[in-house]
Structures are given as structure tokens and as C-alpha cells.
Computed example of a mutant assay.
Amino acid sequence: MGHWEIFLFFLVIAFVYSSVGFGGGSSYLAVLAMYSLPYQEIRLTALVCNVIVVIGGVYIYIKNKQVDWKKVIPITMVSVPMAYWGAVLKISQETFFLILGITLMIAALLLWIKTGTQYENAGAEGTTTSLVRNSFLGGGIGFLSGLVGIGGGIFLSPMLNLLKWDTPRKIAATSSVFILVNSLSGISGQLSKLSVDMDYFRIVGLGLAVFIGGQAGSRLSLKWNPLIIKRMTAILVLVAGVNVLIKYW
């Protein structure tokens, strides 16, 4: 098994992001995209790490009653089967990396944009949502999640913020649930057609690195600016996206 340094990258990313309440899923995908690994392994690894990172956060959100199930269910009920469909859809390696490169570049843009929190105490206008709109939004992002190997929160959270869908805390809770259920759905789709080229020891090892880093970071109260971390991530994700497109265009 080569590329031992990826373990260190994942551990540091999980540590830094969990310390300020982020998951870092896009950074895991960006790092993996820079290595010549089988694309099936990249997708499965990213989804497994997503689950490990967000499951603790989802538990805390539910415990603190931050999850509005009446609003979460319409988004996730369509996204889950779409994520599974995206995961089992047969695409070539070239097509995967082309979609991945474009996805990372769009994700970088969304990460760079600062979505305001001036509606922290959003009223009725922030809670009246369209069932059709939520289902369509969740389904589209869910399909992309399964296809590429992301949780989808990197797209969902900024869009919900721009739509003033709810308070930032409720949006963060919704995004965490969304990432968890779609990652699990994508993993189930991946498990239906495992590749012999994948290094399962590396996947388990990276999952362990993320768990250690995430647990350590979540237990510390560090004075890092979340916006700075998001924009540093945006640069990393953009570089990875451009690199993928140049390599596989």
C-alpha cells in the first residue's frame, strides 16, 4: 500500500475542520483526486469518511432538537434513492473525473461565497418552503452525491442559506443529516459493485485517521476563523478541480 502521507492529510483535515464544526468532505475528495487511485476507491473512501465525520454531529443536532424533520424529510426522501442511483450508474473513469473536476470547481465557488447569517432569528418567511422545490433540490444534489462520492452538504448548505430556508443552525443540522443519509445510500450502491482494484486496507486506514482527527478536534475549542478555513478549502478544492480537468480532459 503506497501514499502513506494521505493518512496524515486526512487526520489533519479532520482535526482542523471538526474543531470549528465542519466535516471537510470536499477536502478529502480533493486530496484523493490528486492521486492516481481507482475512481471507485475515491468515491467509496470519500463517502465512508463523510459518514464517520458527520454521524457524531447529527447525534448532537438531534439531541439538541435542531433537526426539523418536517422540513428535512421532503429533501431527503428523494435524495436517498437518487444517491443510490448515482452510485450504481455505470460511467467510465474519464467521465467520472470530468464530472468530478467540474463539481470541485463549482464547490470551490460555493465555499468562497460568504452566505450571511443576518437571519439568525428567521421568522415565518424562513420556514415556509415548497415541497416540490425541496424534493427537486434534494434529488438533484443526491444524484450528484452518489455519482461523485460527496455527501452533498457542500452544495445544499449554501443554497439553503441563499434561499433563507431557515436559521443557520437549522440549515447546518439539515445539511449534516443530508450528508449522512446520502453517504450511506451511496455506500450501499457502491457495495453492490465492488472493484477488485480497490485497496480496502487504505480505505479502513483513512476512515480511522478521520475518526481520530475528528474526535480530537471536536473536543478542542480552537480560535480559528471558520470563514478563513472555508476559503482555504476553496483554494484547495479549486486547484484539485483544475488539476483533474487538465489531466483527464
Rank of each mutant, 00 (worst) to 15 (best):
T103V: 06
K65A: 09
I60C: 01
G86S: 02
L100R: 04
F97Q: 04
V67R: 08
T95I: 14
N64C: 04
A87W: 07
G152R: 12
K63C: 02
M82I: 02
I52C: 01
I62L: 10
T117M: 07
G57L: 03
L104E: 01
G101V: 11
V54H: 00
Y59R: 13
K63H: 12
Y59P: 01
V132H: 10
M82L: 15
I150S: 05
L104Y: 01
K65L: 07
W112T: 08
L109T: 12
L98I: 07
I106E: 02
K90S: 10
V54A: 02
K63I: 09
Y59L: 09
Q93F: 06
V54Q: 00
A108F: 13
Y84E: 00
Y119R: 13
A124R: 12
A83P: 09
I113C: 05
F136V: 15
L100M: 06
T115R: 08
V53P: 01
W112E: 05
V58Y: 07
V72C: 11
Y61K: 01
N64S: 08
T117H: 10
G56H: 06
G153I: 03
G56W: 05
Y61V: 00
G86T: 05
G116H: 15
I102D: 05
L109G: 15
I91F: 09
S92R: 05
T76C: 15
F143T: 06
W85F: 13
R133A: 12
I154K: 06
L147Y: 02
G146D: 08
G149L: 12
V53Q: 09
I75R: 07
Q118H: 14
Q118L: 14
K65I: 00
L111C: 04
